[in-house]
Design a protein around this nucleic acid. Structure first.
Length: 423
RNA sequence: GGAGAGAUGCCUGAGUGGCCGAAAGGAACAGUUUGCUAAACUGUCGUACUGGCAACGGUACCGAGGGUUCGAAUCCCUCUCUCUCCGCCA
């Protein structure tokens, strides 16, 4: 959520930067400013009347104590008009505030200056490409067929006990999951991220804090009996650890990581390009989250991007880094890099990580601030990224590393799997 | 699931209608002093909105929402959450 004061003071800039996203509703900006004018006026009036009413009430108390009953009664009758007015203005003020809030959450984050203008995925910039595209042997298979051939992932069995998008990992397939999780966590730890194990359900306030609620409600599994949501990413619980918190400046940066299962309803997305592991309702992911001083957030974004790339290099996967254009960026992000891995049998790039700087967009909702010495509390910047999500990594490992003997495990991962081949 | 207790500032905790934005202690920060570690003393020490160049004001907030009252942290109602005991269970 953007800050109203910033919108007021930088109207032109806000409009310009929103246009980088091709934001369809720029008149919202002026509506918000107008509502805020209204809010201020109403509040000023309400405050002055409340001040009079308070003073009158105080006088009544004093007079009563002095035993001057009649004088007290006289003032009492005057205060009834204050009462009506404050009630009216109070109602008006809260109505305006609700409206203002409702409009404010409709404004997406402002893209950073470096974000290219664009409408969708085709306008993203390829920032860099790494690794070698493997030449597959004759008769190479896509990962869902490999998974069946080696009996390591069972989609049918998952259908039976839960539904489509909930695969069962078996034998070396299950061990590979465990290996990847530990590999990612150990690397994050070595890079200075503190491991957290949060709940994988969250309440409404948490869903709101990171922006899943109210607009993306349909994307989360909702436990109606207890009004809890299954997390779509560890970003939600881990970032919400700092909801309503004022940190000391020295505590920054905060670097956390967490492994969690992630649950996404992915309503309405079925078809050939979401086969196998390409899109699931439940998957495993290690997430990295940082809370940083605003001066450093863009350096940190590069750090996080480099860190994610280091994982892909260790796994010997060919990948590319996209700098997302305004139109393709998430609603809450100011700048995002996507990492895509080449899946050789499907012959396509698959997104395995998304690293974003949210600047103050999340922290404003979360009321996540820091305080330096004697200064006033300031909103911190938040960033997060997948490091990494498992299914598409597994898909590309299977497809890219297949040979006559089976599936070769990358050297860096062998200490974690305990085997060199799936066969 | 049954019974009970509670929710106050960074923490502990006092406060049952006006003198309470809130005692006291602790923590933290700043200063003074004693030749070090440390102690003592003094001061500062919530957030948001709002007016003002500023100095300095105003308003709101004692879990949330409503009500009673000239006046509510304090009384009443509803909700949420936490804790304790019992039951069940990992």
């Amino acid at each position: 959520m953007l800050q109203v004061s910033y919108i007021r003071e930088n109207r032109e800039e806000v409009l310009n930067r929103l246009s980088v996203r091709n934001f369809k509703n720029p008149e919202l900006v002026d509506q918000i400013i107008k509502l805020d004018d209204d809010r201020r006026q109403t509040q000023t009036l309400l405050d002055s009347i409340a001040a009079e009413a308070n003073a009158a009430a105080k006088r009544v108390g004093e007079l009563m104590r002095q035993g001057l009953k009649e004088e007290a009664e006289a003032i009492k009758t005057q205060t009834t008009t204050f009462k009506e007015q404050t009630r009216m203005l109070g109602d008006k003020l809260s109505a305006i505030e609700i409206l203002l809030q409702a409009e404010l959450v409709l404004l997406p984050n402002l893209p950073h200056q470096s974000v290219p203008k664009g409408f969708g995925a085709d306008d993203n910039q390829v920032a860099s490409e790494h690794g070698v595209i493997p030449q597959l042997m004759q008769g190479a298979l896509p990962h869902w067929e490999l998974a069946a051939k080696y009996d390591i992932i069972d989609f049918e069995l998952g259908n039976k006990i839960a539904g489509a998008g909930f695969p069962v990992y078996k034998g070396k397939g299950a061990k590979l999951q465990r290996a990847l999780i530990n590999f990612f966590l150990d690397n994050a730890d070595a890079a200075g991220y503190r491991e957290m194990q949060p709940p994988i359900v969250v309440n409404e306030a948490s869903g709101f804090g990171t922006g899943q609620l109210p607009d993306k409600e349909g994307q989360m599994y909702h436990i109606t009996g207890d009004n809890l949501y299954l997390i779509p990413t560890a970003e939600v619980p881990v970032t919400n650890l700092y909801r309503d918190v004022i940190l000391k400046e020295e505590e920054l940066p905060i670097k956390n990581c967490a492994y969690t299962p992630c649950f996404r309803r992915e309503a309405g997305s079925y078809g050939a390009h979401v086969r196998g592991l390409n899109r699931l309702h439940q998957f495993d992911k290690v997430e990295i989250v940082q809370v940083v001083h605003p001066d450093h957030s863009y350096d940190v974004l590069e750090d996080m991007s480099n860190y994610v790339q280091s994982l892909l290099k260790k796994l010997e996967l060919p990948y590319r880094v996209l700098s997302l254009c305004g139109g393709d960026m998430g609603f809450t992000s100011a700048k995002t890099y996507d990492m895509e891995v080449w899946c050789a049998a499907q012959a396509r790039w698959l997104e395995v990580s998304s690293v974003s700087n949210f600047e103050t967009y999340q922290s404003n909702r979360l009321k996540l601030r820091y305080k330096s010495g004697d200064g006033k509390p300031q909103l911190a910047h938040t960033l997060n990224g997948s490091a990494l999500a498992l299914p598409r990594i597994v898909a590309s490992l299977l497809e890219n590393n297949q040979d006559e003997k089976g599936i070769k495990i990358p050297t860096a991962l062998v200490p974690y799997t305990g085997f060199e081949y799936i066969n």
